[in-house]
Simulated scan of single mutants.
Amino acid sequence: MAKIRIAIQKSGRLNEDSLKILKECGISINNGKDQLKATARNFPLEVFYLRNSDIPQYLQDGVVDIAIIGENLLYEKGGNIRIVEKLGFSKCRVSLAVPKSVKYSSVKDFQGKQVATSYPNTVKKYFDSQGVEAELHVINGSVEIAPNIGLADAICDIVSSGSTLFKNNLKEVEVLLTSEAVLAVSPKITDERAAILDRLVFRLQSVLQARQNRYVLMNVPNAKLDEVITVLPGMRSPTVLPLAEEGWSSVHTVINKDKFWEVIDELKLAGAEGILVCPIEKMVL
């Protein structure tokens, strides 16, 4: 039986989060320390642990069928690689930054300047779209130090919290693109392996839906039921069960975690009591 081949970053945070989401999909991977290849025990899947920067080429060549990778790297090197699912972790942005002492007004300020970056294609596309010509210095790693040692006037790099820029006396001035981890697919994937991919995507979507929602239970006086149900943004309609105490019901529903607090406030005002919130392990729509 064919196995689908997935590339994952060899080490680092993206590696950890990738393995975590596969585990939440019920996939057990037999990986020992320093292994470059591993096989799942209970799903037709092989894992290749690769350098992050090499993954787009492996996808292009069909050496692997799919990969968990940052959007920013696909934009830089990905060509015709298709994204099949956004995974919601490893969020960052690719940004231009200049020394804090520099007065900045617009992207036109980069005209004729020297910019150090690990993302030359991304920067060139952006500058071309803005009609700006700049000299690019390609650096792999420690880009932030370039202005401090006189190598460049500015940098373009990935930014998460911005603390690294702050420590190097830099300020973020332009966001070129936002990024998160995605599941990407090789243009050379076979039909047989594409069918396995469909099964994997189904599991991933169930996990991602669960991460985005919370299961909520509450006690409501029957006289307030209609008012409470009007507030609820549930999947379809909530489950309403009678309590042992006459005149009361238990209401069960699912609420998006981003809307949770505002909805809870409204529920309390509408008469809900004893509100219990639970995480959801899987959610199949």
Rank of each mutant, 00 (worst) to 15 (best):
Q130R: 13
D226V: 06
F202P: 02
Y49E: 03
S186A: 13
P233V: 14
R236Q: 14
K10D: 02
Y215N: 08
P279Q: 14
I81R: 00
V185M: 01
E266Y: 07
D226Y: 02
P44D: 10
Q212D: 14
I255L: 04
V115E: 03
A244L: 12
D34A: 13
D191S: 08
A134W: 00
L45K: 02
K167R: 11
T164L: 12
G162Y: 03
I66W: 02
R214A: 10
A195Y: 05
K268Q: 07
R51S: 05
Y49H: 04
L204C: 11
N219D: 14
K282A: 06
V123T: 04
G274A: 13
N222E: 11
F202Y: 12
S95P: 08
A152M: 08
P187I: 14
E133G: 14
G88Y: 12
E266W: 03
V251C: 03
I21W: 01
F110P: 00
Q9H: 13
S161I: 14
V240L: 14
T164D: 07
S163T: 14
A134H: 02
A272I: 03
V159R: 01
H137W: 06
G271M: 03
N52T: 10
P147A: 06
K100E: 06
E76I: 06
V64R: 00
R93Q: 14
A244D: 15
Q111K: 08
G234W: 13
L232C: 05
T122I: 15
E76H: 09
I196T: 06
Y119A: 07
V63R: 15
V138F: 05
I158G: 04
N148I: 05
G131I: 05
L225N: 02
E246D: 09
Q205V: 07
L73F: 09
K10V: 01
L276Q: 09
T178M: 10
R13Q: 12
F48I: 05
V220P: 01
Y75G: 00
K257S: 11
V207F: 04
K100M: 11
R193V: 02
I275G: 09
L200T: 00
S142F: 12
N169T: 07
L183A: 07
A244V: 14
G141Y: 09
S206W: 03
L177G: 01
G274V: 09
L177Q: 04
D265I: 06
K188R: 13
E85I: 10
R236V: 10
E71G: 11
R236H: 15
L96D: 04
L208V: 05
T164E: 08
K77N: 03
M1A: 15
D258M: 14
V185C: 01
Q114G: 07
Y215T: 05
A154D: 08
N222L: 05
D54P: 03
L19F: 05
A270Q: 03
T117F: 08
T39K: 04
D265Q: 10
I55H: 00
S129G: 13
L243Q: 09
L50S: 02
T230V: 15
D61P: 02
K100T: 08
A116M: 07
S118I: 04
K3R: 11
G131S: 09
V201T: 10
F43S: 04
G88W: 11
N80E: 13
D128P: 03
A210K: 00
V175Q: 15
G32D: 06
D258V: 13
